[in-house]
Write a protein that binds this DNA or RNA. Structure first.
Lengths: 156, 156
DNA sequence: ACCTTGATTTTTAATCGTTCTAAGTTTATA
DNA sequence: TATAAACTTAGAACGATTAAAAATCAAGGT
């Protein structure tokens, strides 16, 4: 997608296509790892140094309300953002901190009524150890029982 | 449950049963509305004025790690706490802010492996308008199309 | 019961994600 | 190009949570 197409997409969403909005949208399309607002900020700022962090929050909020992205509260520390696709669960690894898309549908859907409550959106968050870290852990423990650091990662 | 029983429960969890821990545990058992740390603090402080907020965080963290309570990140603003029962989804009303237990099982469970990832816990959060607010809204709009405030509530 | 030692609580300050404010800039439209 | 509305910016403010250090308490041995 080029600049023009992003502008069109934003216009269709009812948003004025400013260069900041186009830049954030482009970043989100090229970085589908569920970045935090700060990660978006740092990523976009590289190619757009005058960008303000408040703008990132403003743009993310506008995109969210326009229904173009979803906000994930999978971790207490910071919200994460996902380009809108059909609803699906997310998995967060407690070892490396990465967030993965899970290829399963939700059991409850928009429009459903559960226990008398009108459903507008659903998020399922799964926590554990991801495939990559399980492998690494297995390797390490097989070799030497090395301590497998459980601290947070520092990004993808 | 009386004080002695709470002490026993804490001991079984491997925690020294201090009066603060007993008080927080008791509060959580009597207020199963998924309170925030601050709501726990205010609630317990009533009957225990010397209580510190840091202690509430410490106790909640200890209870969480001992597996006695679950932490919900259903809203970005603040974590909420739930006495441990079998895993179930939660519903948050965007009108009144209340959080309800949903009587449905999760589709994914502890111990499962999904896409190669080892599952340790699952949380499903559903957002929308609760039964109570739907009724109220219907009543109001039938009567006079009164504005239905969408701001946060101020508790149960 | 008393002591010792490690765990816990307390107060206070710090951190950090997010929101607010006020001023400056840009966009859409005429 | 003029104008008003929308948007961006920098920086201050906010609020939930965590950290640090000193004071207090709980448990087990004497």
């Amino acid at each position: 997608m080029n600049h023009e197409e992003h502008s069109t997409k934003l216009r269709k969403l009812g948003l004025i296509p400013t260069i900041q909005r186009v830049a954030v949208l482009k970043f989100l399309e090229n970085n589908r790892v569920h970045p935090t607002a700060d990660e978006v900020y740092r990523g976009v700022k590289d190619s757009f140094p005058s960008l303000s962090k408040a703008t990132v929050y403003n743009v993310l909020d506008a995109l969210k309300r326009a229904g173009a992205i979803r906000e994930l509260t999978i971790a207490r520390q910071a919200a994460r953002y996902d380009i809108m696709t059909s609803p699906h669960p997310h998995f967060m690894c407690r070892v490396c901190g990465r967030v993965y898309d899970i290829d399963l549908p939700h059991a409850v859907h928009e429009g459903d009524v559960v226990d008398g409550h009108q459903v507008e959106s659903v998020q399922t968050y799964i926590y554990g150890v991801c495939a990559r870290c399980r492998e690494k852990g297995a390797k390490n423990s097989a070799r030497k029982d090395q301590e497998t650091k459980a601290s947070g990662r520092d990004d993808a």
